[in-house]
């Protein structure tokens, strides 16, 4: 198992390098570059050349790439072109805010999805199943920005019950205040994460329940509950567990739209502002971060899967 993880980590290194090259080259290929952002057409040629030299843009591309990569490896993500502030410092504040929002809502959605999915799947075709599956089908079609607007309209405008912007009222950092700001984006995200997981658990439960081993267990006198909890659940939860690993990048980029709508001071608005302002170093930093998390998340998913399933565990050991 340790050997398997080590091998997977080694494979991840060239993959990450490749991603960094692609991200870097794509940003270089974009029509508007960092120099354009820092200079104005009125500036003289000499001034522009001086700025280029100051930021190292007069060097060959590969030198620039390695300088950037070297910085990344030391945890230096560079500086915003627009605000000149350190990206690493900004992210250090914003990522925890995003995690504070995404992690609880994802976990609530995940656990709810497992419970409802197992209930619906094991009562396939019943009224209960139709209701649960119907709700999931409707929710999967609801865009989260629309839902966010609807919640803002109802709870913020009509009822005036909850604040709709930010994480806290200026000058009031109390727990209750943060909680009141927390509710709407939390509900939006929970509903956004729920239907996909729910449908996955339901269909995977149905697949398992129609497997031969379920009938065999029945033929050997197992109770329905025994079959559900000892056999079906474990077989369903293996693949569902791997989704948890795959969800890792969500911690950074899982709520960009929702955060932006509610002006939650997380990664979302930061990323959106950077894209609109062509603040390339920020865009690159977040892209690198989220693709790294995708790779780690996949590795985590595979490890979880191997732990849950002896067929994969032993296949990997050989």
């Amino acid at each position: 198992m340790a050997k398997y993880i080590a091998r997977r980590l080694l494979i991840a290194i060239p993959l990450l390098l490749l991603i960094s090259i692609i991200v870097f080259l794509l940003m270089r290929a974009a029509p508007y570059d960092a120099i354009d952002a820092m200079t104005t057409p009125k500036m003289s040629e000499e001034t522009i050349a001086a700025i280029k030299a100051q930021y190292g843009y007069d060097q060959p591309v590969w030198v620039q790439y390695f300088a950037w990569l070297g910085g990344l490896l030391q945890g230096n993500f560079g500086y915003s072109i627009v605000t000149k502030s350190s990206i690493a410092e900004q992210l250090a504040v914003r990522i925890p805010n995003t995690i504070l929002l995404v992690l609880p809502s994802y976990l609530v959605a995940y656990v709810t999805a497992i419970v409802l999915g197992l209930v619906a799947g094991s009562h396939r075709g019943s009224r209960l199943d139709h209701v649960i599956d119907g709700i999931a089908s409707v929710l999967i079609a609801v865009p989260s920005f629309w839902l966010a607007m609807l919640l803002i309209f109802v709870f913020g405008y009509l009822l005036r019950a909850l604040p709709i912007v930010g994480m806290q009222t200026v000058g009031d950092g109390s727990f209750v205040d943060v909680l009141r700001h927390y509710i709407l984006p939390f509900v939006t995200l929970t509903i956004a994460f729920l239907p996909d997981n729910l449908r996955y658990v339901r269909s995977s439960t149905i697949t398992q329940i129609t497997q031969d081993y379920v009938m065999v267990q029945e033929a050997f006198g197992a109770k329905r509950a025994e079959i559900m909890f000892r056999h079906v659940c474990r077989n369903v939860l293996g693949p569902v567990l791997t989704r948890l690993g795959m969800a890792l990048p969500m911690l950074v980029t899982g709520a960009i739209i929702t955060e932006t709508i509610f002006s939650w001071p997380g990664v979302g608005p930061y990323f959106m502002t950077a894209i609109k302002g062509m603040d390339y170093p920020i865009v690159m930093a977040i892209l690198i971060l989220s693709s790294t998390l995708v790779i780690i998340g996949n590795l985590l998913a595979d490890v979880l899967n191997a732990l849950a399933d002896p067929r994969i565990r032993q296949g990997g050991a050989r």
Binding site: D212, Y213, G221, K223, R230, R234, N235, R311
Partner: peptide, 24 residues
């Protein structure tokens, strides 16, 4: 009836490849 199944009457099936729980 459930207690009888497996106890007094047992049944085995066509496809032994899928008749056992793969995780046990």
């Amino acid at each position: 009836r459930r207690r009888m199944r497996g106890g007094e009457i047992a049944m085995i099936f066509q496809d032994p490849m899928t008749s056992l729980d793969p995780l046990r």
